[in-house]
């Protein structure tokens, strides 16, 4: 399983892996918002965490369509399915998700405090945004894996994945953003939404790969 993780990580990072696409999109999105909204620092600070979360959510959906499609096109997927008796398929999917997350979503989390500065988010908010993204974005990848598995046989699966997956990621977005606001605005709580976010990620870490492996098994 470590071998699979390392292979997917290498593929993600090497040229053509598409790990950069997400981060460039994230950067473009967040960097253009202040120009569009105008130089009202209070307003920017207020919408900042939400923009960071929305940007990270959309950016992490970008590369998902290649999660299984690349393996299907070169025939690797067949062999991954064949090895099911040695490696439970859901576990294989989970490992692929983790590798994908490390290669293309973790950079978004790392970049988010820097981009938060563009939005005049205060230091506590920057930390909270990075922390909630770190905890919450794996959930998006896990749900996305199920979408990617359903649309693996479709030639333009990317759009389909966004349509399928976006509604399912809304709870993650809601609790991620409200936890971030909880750290900044005083009456709102931080811990409760943050714990729900953790729970969502753990729950989807099980359900997502199981759903994805069921879909992959019947892809042909």
């Amino acid at each position: 399983m470590l071998a699979l993780f390392l292979r997917d990580l290498r593929l993600g990072i090497r040229a053509g892996g598409g790990a950069l696409t997400g981060i460039v999109f994230f950067l473009a999105l967040v960097a253009t918002i202040p120009f569009g909204v105008g130089p009202d620092l209070n307003l920017l600070a207020r919408i900042g965490p939400a923009i960071l979360w929305i940007g990270a959510l959309l950016a992490s959906l970008l590369g998902l369509d290649r999660l299984f499609q690349a393996d299907r096109e070169d025939g690797s997927l067949d062999l991954l399915l064949l090895a099911e008796d040695r490696h439970m398929l859901a576990l294989t999917v989970l490992v692929k998700c983790l590798a994908h997350w490390t290669a293309s979503v973790l950079p978004l989390v790392v970049a988010s405090p820097l981009l938060g500065l563009f939005m005049n988010v205060e230091p506590a908010g920057l930390g909270a945004a990075a922390l909630t993204l770190l905890v919450g974005t794996p959930a998006i990848t896990f749900v996305g894996a199920a979408g990617a598995a359903v649309s693996v046989a479709l030639p333009r699966g990317g759009l389909m994945i966004s349509v399928l997956v976006l509604p399912l990621t809304i709870p993650v977005l809601i609790f991620g953003v409200s936890a971030t606001y909880g750290a900044v605005a005083d009456p709102a709580p931080f811990l409760q939404p943050f714990l729900i976010l953790c729970a969502l990620t753990l729950f989807l870490a099980v359900v997502g790969p199981l759903a994805a492996s069921a879909a992959l098994r019947h892809a042909d």
């Binding site: 593929l11 090497r14 053509g16 690797s76």
Partner: peptide, 9 residues
Amino acid sequence: HQNAMKTAL
């Protein structure tokens, strides 16, 4: 028919 090898590796 496919070789199941990654071109980037």
